[in-house]
């Protein structure tokens, strides 16, 4: 049975590390709405690969430094 993937992120932490960057500022930088940034931070929305890369670029880090995956349930 395929294990369920849970995607977690460090967007809130990275915003804090970048001089308390606001959600609005990040949203404008990546071309999304503030609600989308809010939903990503709350784990209510998993962004597309393109948006994930844009967010990583906004913080100057790799995408894996922003998004982490965790397998829940049986693997393999």
């Amino acid at each position: 049975m395929k294990a369920k993937m849970k995607i977690e992120n460090r967007v809130r932490r990275l915003r804090f590390d970048h001089g308390e960057m606001t959600q609005q500022a990040l949203a404008e930088k990546v071309g999304a709405t503030r609600q989308t940034v809010l939903a990503i931070e709350a784990g209510k929305y998993a962004p597309s690969l393109e948006l994930a890369f844009r967010i990583a670029d906004a913080f100057g880090v790799g995408v894996e430094a922003v998004f982490q995956r965790e397998y829940v349930g049986d693997a393999g």
């Binding site: 989308t36 962004p47 597309s48 948006l51």
Partner: peptide, 8 residues
Amino acid sequence: KEDRDERD
């Protein structure tokens, strides 16, 4: 005003 994004 905010344009629609991928989530919308």
